[in-house]
Design a protein around this nucleic acid. Sequence first.
DNA 1: CTAGATTTTGAGAGTTACTGTCAGAAGACA
DNA 2: TGTCTTCTGACAGTAACTCTCAAAATCTAG
Lengths: 194, 194
Amino acid sequence: MLEAPLGLRERKKLKTRRAIRSAAFSLFADQGYEATTVDQIAAVAEVSPSTFFRYFPTKEDLVISDDYDPLLEAAFRARPKDEPLRQALRTAMVGPLRQVLAAERDEMLLRMELYRQVPAIRARAMTEQQQTSARLCRLIAERTGEDPAGLHLRVLVTTIVAAAGEAVLYWSERGGVDDMTELLDQALDVVIGP
Amino acid sequence: MLEAPLGLRERKKLKTRRAIRSAAFSLFADQGYEATTVDQIAAVAEVSPSTFFRYFPTKEDLVISDDYDPLLEAAFRARPKDEPLRQALRTAMVGPLRQVLAAERDEMLLRMELYRQVPAIRARAMTEQQQTSARLCRLIAERTGEDPAGLHLRVLVTTIVAAAGEAVLYWSERGGVDDMTELLDQALDVVIGP
DNA sequence: CTAGATTTTGAGAGTTACTGTCAGAAGACA
DNA sequence: TGTCTTCTGACAGTAACTCTCAAAATCTAG
């Protein structure tokens, strides 16, 4: 159940997924996101358009994919119960970000470039951000017993997540030359104080 | 130039615009946003689909429309130069909101209901929010001489706008029974302190 | 009030993202 | 090997746009 010898079927699925994604990104690089049609991507990846949509429900999903949220959740749950909330949040956010960054820095820069240039992607990413906020609210409420739907908590979380998003955006605009965790720290200072 | 005797042409345009919008909202109320097609709206409003798109570039634009930003800008510019920035912002945000609320409370509740229920609207509204943030950054930069693209200012503004948005959302979720300006004040307390 | 310039409109054809269905191909498993 | 399940591609359909063009409505000069 936990082990993954990965049957042929699974391996093929992964391969197809990767093929579609890389076909897509290479086309995006050539022609831009909006000028690239799903049919073209499917053709280059050598699958049918139907198959494309089986792997990615929307064209935007090619770009979005989010490994961060589960990591954040785990990191937050791992914080000691007596740690002050704001401190716990800060630590729980920085760690996983560093982790993701180490693993897929270049991919992240690419996605952020699309985020900046394509309104549809930006819109979609923002709704993902809202979901992150909502999940985080529930998570914190679990820990503190606070009302997860109360105005105070919701504003706190929404702004923290927005601050983090802005830090990542800023980082990408400058081509990733800065230390991302430092930027995130600075951004969080604005909301939750140093 | 400033006066508006409004020729027949202009009057008709306004009328058409209103006809389309009210047709749309009445259909939305009956069938929901997504189940309502542009063709249906055009039919009820007695215009051709082409004309619909001339008045509203996208279906989402029916719901979005934003009177707030210009008011905010004017209110902010009107604050005395020696007032502390955070205080100026707070005042500049609350005033116009009260104004808009007084004029179109019910419409606002309706739009927020769609915001909550329709992902496409939410996504679109979020990108509008980003534009508000960007404009506000420029505005503040003008006043303080700060770098409009600096991380600090951007985070501050983004979070303030996000906090305000969350306050409005909260207000609408509770059916508008609260005093909105109080909620906004509370929300801003989280970001910029009391 | 009429003639001509300008703007607005509707019809129609085309593109693209996406949905649903179904038969056949391909991996899993006994 | 044969059956059972899953994956795939072909196809048809929908809905939001976009573009083009000719006809209709409004505006403006004389």
